[in-house]
């Protein structure tokens, strides 16, 4: 009756991916090679994340997908539908209800809890890549803990822009050992990388998996005289008034009207349902 195995991938492939995930959990921040499979969607859509989600998913799971914080983009909707169709799992837009959350470019605002799994879609897993194109050499650098080059990148940032201008995919050091690319999340999210939930990272095209077990120590790299700053737009959310969330700037009309709204749509709507109203909130709802 069903043309696919549960969650599309065959059991042998899922076992192979789970082995890579377990190895990744055992060596936090270490990139584990895995034999990435063809998925019925383009690479840019997060096939690495999809394979990881498929490997950890059980029929009892409740699945949520966010793309830049939103549940309703084409990408998020497609992946959610994919697992509804192939795994028949429950889906949700509520961060609190989800047991597996697949994400592109954000960590939910609401603190995740033990028992939840956050799956990241990763385009380029190797943080040293942009300065050292040789894969052989970067592997050696990881193995021997030679991370001076990472600071060269930050040095170049400051030399050119007066400050560490890297605002996405900001490199971190995991448990004092491996330097890791947290995927293109805003650096605003970096402090949340030490969390109660399990975090799994899947890079499909690059065939790499890595992981952060709960409560892993994750430190953003910086200089003593240019300490890491999470940064945030100097605004409150115009819809819900939140002063602690990551904001998107949204164009509201052709006359150059703009507003700032929470990038995490579930977080914002929960606050509004709870009665919080931002500066433009009433107008926007009406």
């Amino acid at each position: 009756m069903n043309a696919y195995n549960f969650a599309y991938l065959d059991e042998q492939t899922k076992r192979m991916i789970r082995r890579a995930l377990l190895k990744g959990m055992a060596i936090p921040g270490y990139q584990v090679p895995f034999a990435s499979r063809e998925m019925p969607m383009p690479y840019g859509w997060g096939t690495g994340g999809v394979q990881v989600s498929a490997a950890v998913m059980t029929p009892e799971d409740c699945f949520k997908v966010i793309d830049q914080g939103a549940d309703d983009t084409t990408n998020a909707v497609s992946i959610r539908r994919f697992f509804q169709a192939t795994a028949g799992v429950a889906v949700t837009e509520k961060t609190a209800e989800a047991t597996v959350i697949q994400t592109r470019h954000r960590i939910p605002e609401r603190d995740l809890v033990e028992g939840q799994i956050l799956v990241y879609q990763v385009p380029i897993p190797e943080p040293l890549r942009f300065l050292e194109p040789s894969e052989v050499e970067t592997r050696k650098m990881h193995a021997l803990e030679e991370y001076g080059l990472m600071h060269v990148k930050l040095y170049e940032d400051i030399a050119r822009h007066g400050d560490i201008s890297t605002s996405y995919a900001y490199p971190v050091k995991v448990e004092g050992r491996y330097v890791m690319d947290p995927s293109p999340i805003p650096k605003f999210d970096n402090p949340k990388l030490s969390m109660a939930a399990i975090q799994l990272f899947g890079a499909g095209r690059e065939q790499r998996i890595y992981a952060l077990p709960p409560y892993t120590e994750v430190v953003s790299l910086d200089f003593e005289d240019y300490p890491f700053q999470a940064g945030r737009a100097d605004h409150d959310c115009d819809l819900c008034g939140a002063d602690n969330s990551y904001l998107d700037e949204v164009i509201t009309d052709d006359a150059g009207g703009r507003m700032f709204v929470c990038s995490d749509t579930d977080f914002c709507s929960e606050r509004r349902e709870a009665g919080h109203v931002g500066a433009l909130g009433v107008e926007a709802v009406a």
Binding site: G148, L149, E156
Partner: peptide
């Protein structure tokens, strides 16, 4: 990499972290 970054790399490779 800039001239400064090229010279600074060896310093950073041995742990210098003050820009």
């Amino acid at each position: 990499v800039s001239a400064g970054g090229n010279v600074g790399e060896r310093l950073m490779a041995v742990g210098a972290q003050h820009y």
